[in-house]
Design a binder for these strands. Sequence first.
DNA 1: TCTGGAAGTTACAGACCGGTAACACCCTAG
DNA 2: CTAGGGTGTTACCGGTCTGTAACTTCCAGA
Lengths: 193, 193
Amino acid sequence: MTDGVVERSRPRDRILETAQDMFHKHGIKGVGVDAITEAAGTNKMTLYRHFESKDDLIIECLRATAAKASRIWDEFEARHPGDKLAQLHAWVHKASEMLSADSRGCDMANAAVELSESDHPARRVIKELKEAQRERLVALCRDAGVGQAELLADTLSLLLEGARVSMQSVGAEGPSAQFVRMAEGLIASFRAR
Amino acid sequence: MTDGVVERSRPRDRILETAQDMFHKHGIKGVGVDAITEAAGTNKMTLYRHFESKDDLIIECLRATAAKASRIWDEFEARHPGDKLAQLHAWVHKASEMLSADSRGCDMANAAVELSESDHPARRVIKELKEAQRERLVALCRDAGVGQAELLADTLSLLLEGARVSMQSVGAEGPSAQFVRMAEGLIASFRAR
DNA sequence: TCTGGAAGTTACAGACCGGTAACACCCTAG
DNA sequence: CTAGGGTGTTACCGGTCTGTAACTTCCAGA
């Protein structure tokens, strides 16, 4: 289960899943299309029959990642229906859980770092997806009855983004280890007002 | 003054300065040694006479960047001698200033994202330099008389790291726009205890 | 003025990159 | 059974990458 996703499903799905995994682990510029297709148990021609270019594949991977994240958000609502504050705490808990489980951070943020050309087609996609996530967190904070919901959401957002990138520089014993304490403290402090 | 640093100084210095600039703007994997030497007004052989490899050059660039940052810290002490709280506020102000002036974030964090191989020689250097910066911020918070200095320092650190990476994903109008408000609010809140 | 070392020049090696052409194969729908 | 679309295979293109070899030029210090 390291790199080779060779279950029998349709080649396009295997390529997408494998590419997501490899881009995440090794970075976008650190993985060639040959390596992806080989790990997906197929070949380069099949990749280019399903995706216009590597850039196109990158974009589809980012969309797939965002869709996964969206499903996790749906779980919060399913587990704590109507209780927005509980959902916010679930968000903090889940974020911390994912920090512990994986040290390669956020695919979209990493892609934004790697794809420095300002006109790269993936950049507008990254921006769109990140903005959607931001709005969702703002809405959650607002519905949880917190004053200054935007500010709390943005602060939590920066904290998490920072934790994910700090993990990659200094490891799990660095500042990111205190993420839950920071986030819970902030929520309490904003609610107290 | 975009890329070409062709003033007459010693080739090694020109290469180092140019490489820093180009790695920062275009990413490490986005710049080849040929492009660096050309922009530095020299050639590849000269580069390899002064640096063992591209990896070695990367490491020297990171050290140079950290040295620059260290000089900025020294300015805080020079401008507000003894007044640690003023220095902390100066840190916030300077951080925000640098966020506005540049949207490519922290070279060390970016390098950690790009160089995903866990045994890359630059990784331990990044960790060392980042840990030194963390200790310096912790000391500043402690000397400023803040309770829970470590927690404040780590929170500020994650906020800034997050702001720098968020800037690259969603731009300057995103959550990072509130950095000063967040940081000042945190400092006030920690001091109130 | 002579000399030694630093720097510049050209060419190249060997690997990898994204992307394409041409063709053989297989499996399923009709 | 047959036709056709999806898939696999091989070879290739032009470009870029890090790194090296061999040679020339330049310049400062004795």
